[in-house]
Write a protein that binds this DNA or RNA. Structure first.
Lengths: 228, 228
DNA sequence: ACCTGAACACCGTTCAAGT
DNA sequence: ACCTGAACACCGTTCAAGT
C-alpha cells in the first residue's frame, strides 16, 4: 500500500501541478472519465482531496490540463511535410490515434471550449490551411471545417468507448451489438441504418476517419481552385 | 405554487413518459443541462423523484428521449428537394438551427452513442447520400463524414453555450472574451489563432457551418466523379 | 506555507411504506 | 398498481484545524 504511494510521490516531496496531472492521466487511462474523482486522485497522491485545489482550479481545469498534455505530445511528434495536405492528414491522424488510445481526450475536446488543447488543435489546422494559400475569405471556414470534423469524430469515439466500457464490451462485441440493434430497426423508418447493419462489423474507423478528411480537403481544394 | 403544478399535471392525471419528457424539455430550455435534475423534474410534475423511474430508465434515457423529440421534429419539417445536395444542406441546417436554439441537444447528440436520435440523423444523411448515387464503396464514408461534421459542430456549439451560460455572457461578450484571450496568445506558439482573433467578433456561425457542409459535399462529389 | 480530512451541498437511484 | 419521499452511495468543493 505504502509502496504504491511512494512510487507516485516521495515521502516528503511537495505536490506539484505536473505531478497531479500525470496522476490524473494514469487514472483516466485505467478507469476512464468516470474513474477520475478527487478522492481517487488524492489517494494516488497520498494526500487529501483538498490539497489538490492548491494547484488545480477545478475538475474542468484538471481535465483540460490532462488533455493538453496529450495534445501537446501529438504536436511535438509532428513531422514536417512538403505538401500541406499531407501535413494536415498526418496531424489529423495523430489526433485520431491519440483519441483512439485515450477516449477521454475526445470527450474533453468537445466539452471544454476555448481551452488550450482546443486552441492547439485549431491553430495547427489553421497553420496548414494557411500554407495551402486558400483565398483569405475561405481560410477561416476551411479551418473550422477540418477542426469541427476532427472534434466531432473524437466526441463520437469517446462516447462509444464510454458505452463499451460501462457494458464491459470489446470492440467486436460493441459493433455486433450495434449491428444487431440496427438490423432490428424498421426498414421503413430507418432504411439506411437498417440496410447498412451487416457491413457494420467489418469496417475500419481509422480508414473512415481519413476518408472524411480527404473529402473535406478535396472540397477545400476544389472550391478554392487550387492547383496541386 | 399549486397552480403552476396543475398546469403541468392535472390533480389526478396519471404520469406518462411523454408528459415527463415534455417537462424535461421545458427545464432543459430554461436552465440548460445543469438544471435538469430529478428533483427539479419531480417538482414540476408535482410528484416525488422516485415516480419518474416508473417511466424512465435513467438520466441518459431521459436525455435521449428529450433529444429524440427535438430531432424527430426537425425530421418532420423536412421538405422534399429535387436535388439531394440541397436536401442534405436543408437537413443539416435544420439540425444546426435546432441545436442553436437548444444547445443541450448538441451535447446529448455527442454523448449518447447508438441512441435513437443519433440513428435518426445518420439515417437521414445516409438516405440523401444514397440518392446521390455515390459509388457503393464510398457510401458509408461519405455518410459518416457529413454525420461526424454535424455532430462535431453540435458538440462545440453546446459547449460554448454552456460556458456562456455559466458566466452569464451573451454571444457578443462570449466572442469578445474569446477574441481577447486569443490575441493575448504567443504569436510564436499560436500564430493562426493569434492572427485571427480580431476577425472573431464578426463571424457568422451558421454561415461557417454551411461552408463546411459545402466543402464536404463538393469533396464527395469530386471524389465520386459525379456529374451534376 | 502547505497539507489534512471532516463537513457541506448536492447529485442519481433505490425501496420500504403508504394509497 | 402506482406514487411518495426518506435513505443511500457518491460526487466536487470548502475550510477550520493542524504541521
Amino acid at each position: 500500500m505504502m509502496e504504491a504511494k511512494r512510487k507516485v510521490r516521495g515521502r516528503d516531496a511537495a505536490l506539484s501541478r505536473t505531478q497531479i496531472v500525470k496522476a490524473a492521466i494514469v487514472i483516466l487511462d485505467r478507469d476512464g472519465e468516470a474513474g477520475l474523482t478527487f478522492k481517487a486522485l488524492a489517494e494516488r497522491l497520498a494526500t487529501g482531496p483538498g490539497a489538490i485545489y492548491g494547484y488545480i482550479a477545478n475538475k474542468d481545469d484538471l481535465l483540460a490540463a490532462a488533455c493538453d498534455a496529450i495534445v501537446a505530445n501529438v504536436m511535438q511528434g509532428r513531422k514536417e511535410c512538403a505538401d500541406p495536405f499531407d501535413s494536415i492528414k498526418a496531424f489529423a491522424v495523430g489526433i485520431f490515434d491519440a483519441i483512439d488510445e485515450r477516449p477521454w481526450v475526445g470527450a474533453a475536446l468537445v466539452r471544454l471550449p476555448g481551452q488550450s488543447p482546443l486552441v492547439r488543435v485549431l491553430d495547427a489546422v489553421g497553420q496548414d490551411i494557411r500554407a495551402l494559400d486558400v483565398p483569405a475569405d475561405r481560410e477561416w471556414a476551411s479551418t473550422m471545417a477540418v477542426f469541427n470534423y476532427i472534434v466531432g469524430v473524437g466526441g463520437q469515439h469517446a462516447a462509444n468507448a464510454r458505452l463499451a466500457h460501462s457494458k464491459h464490451w470489446d470492440r467486436t462485441e460493441m459493433l455486433a451489438s450495434l449491428a444487431r440493434s440496427w438490423s432490428d430497426l424498421d426498414a421503413e423508418e430507418y432504411p439506411f441504418a437498417q440496410s447498412v447493419a451487416p457491413q457494420l462489423s467489418n469496417h475500419d474507423d481509422r480508414a473512415d476517419f481519413l476518408a472524411g478528411i480527404e473529402f473535406i480537403l478535396v472540397g477545400i481544394r476544389t472550391c478554392s481552385r487550387l492547383i496541386v
